[in-house]
Computed example of a mutant assay.
Amino acid sequence: MSSAPQAKTPATRSIEGKETPVLLTPGPLTTSARVKEAMLRDWGSRDPAFVALSQGVFDRIRALSGGTAEDHVCVPLQGSGTFAVEAMLTTFVGAGERVLLLVNGAYGHRMADICRKSGRAVEIYEVAETEVHDPAEVSRRLRLDPAIAFVAMVHCETTSGLLNPLEDIASCVRAEGRWLLVDSMSGFGALSVDMSGLELAAMAASSNKCLQGVPGLGFVVCRKELLEAARGRAPSVVLDLQAQAAALANGGQWRFTPPTHVIAALDAALAELEEEGGPPARLERYSQNLATLLSGMDRLGFQPALDPARQAPVIASFVEPADDWFSFETFYEALRARGFAIYAGKMTGRGTFRVGVIGAIDSLTIEAFLTATKAVVSEMKQKVIS
């Protein structure tokens, strides 16, 4: 597998004191110069060249998902990834149907909020933020309730960085004759998703995470026959996937103004993904980033919040030290001044912070971050002593 060219990553240049930090987050994330440059051109939304560009982007995304041209379609939507998740849930889950939500973090809870707000009946199977769901329990719940037509899950829960067992859950849902809806927002493009092999109903993701594009575009890859069966089901005008797909199939025109620059940037980002060696090569790079991060943070005394066996190579949560010297706000600002932006934690019941390992970065970037972190920790401890 090929690796990303190190000469093009932020780690190979001096970044201290720069106004634009390296984003060690789960998205928006650090993008390449090539992706940024793709946004310098203006596109007419009805221009045949743009129609061809966007259709090519969506066909490549569908292929990356393991979907076939005969059975699957990629339906784009303006907005963040949550727009795509809401569109997926409210288009496919009918008003008289129930959906079983697998929750172990904030993004599972967000799906529950969407369903309740839109009047979709839900059953929630929740486990701790550090745990994964038991496929046998999923099967048991499905057998007890024939009204459950769909199961919905988060592939990589960016609350913590937890990797959920997509293949195991898909297998038990398929065995019970139900359909699985997947939020693979922070996984798609690196973590394996096989629409055909896993017989998924739909998968939602976005342009600005493992695909390494910029924010502004969500999309849902779904089965064509299920999408057609959902005609008229969505309670929203703008989030109706079936209506959007029908419009795009009729000459490639969006129903509403498309994010032209975002799509052009995604076209460039997909080219970079292909040149890198596809999702397996990207996963290898991210995994190397994660290994470098975990070992370096361990040397500095920071403990991961998750069992390494459940840690996705996307973003890692670390437990905040209980010592007097540590303040997340001070820690964040000192790292930001040295050219690195991290995320506050989202886990409940304990203080954590998060460091992402995705984007146009490599292990050299992570090593530079660790050097900066070591200096920040030393300074913070010294201030307490003095």
Rank of each mutant, 00 (worst) to 15 (best):
V51A: 11
T330I: 01
A136P: 03
D194K: 14
E123W: 01
A344N: 13
I114D: 02
R338P: 03
G94T: 09
D267M: 00
L166D: 11
S363L: 02
A33R: 13
V237T: 07
G108S: 08
E276N: 03
A4L: 15
V22D: 02
Y107L: 09
L248E: 10
L270E: 05
I15S: 09
L211Q: 06
E16R: 15
P48M: 12
D323S: 12
I148N: 08
L241Y: 07
S65D: 05
E123M: 09
M153S: 13
F219S: 12
S80F: 05
I169G: 09
P304A: 08
K346L: 15
G81P: 05
L29S: 14
E126N: 04
L53E: 10
A269P: 04
V154D: 09
S3T: 14
G252F: 05
A268C: 06
D71V: 04
S139T: 14
A121Y: 01
L40S: 06
A63Y: 03
R338C: 05
A106P: 00
F83H: 13
R285S: 11
E225N: 14
L24H: 02
M153G: 08
L181G: 12
D240S: 06
G189I: 05
L29I: 13
Y125K: 05
A128R: 15
D183A: 14
V93Y: 04
G79N: 11
Q78V: 10
Q6L: 09
G359E: 01
H133K: 06
K209H: 12
L300D: 02
A247W: 02
M347F: 00
A128T: 07
E333Y: 06
A69T: 12
S171V: 01
A246P: 00
V122S: 08
G252R: 10
I358L: 01
G351N: 09
T371S: 11
H109F: 02
G177T: 10
T365Q: 03
R336G: 06
G278E: 04
M297N: 05
V138I: 15
L102T: 07
A360V: 00
A269S: 15
N250C: 11
F326T: 04
E225P: 00
G189Q: 13
D42Y: 06
E70F: 01
T158S: 15
F50M: 08
K346S: 03
L211N: 11
K224C: 09
A375T: 09
T257D: 13
Q242K: 09
T90Q: 09
S139L: 10
A291T: 12
E320A: 10
L166V: 13
T25F: 05
L77P: 06
D267I: 00
A106D: 12
V154P: 07
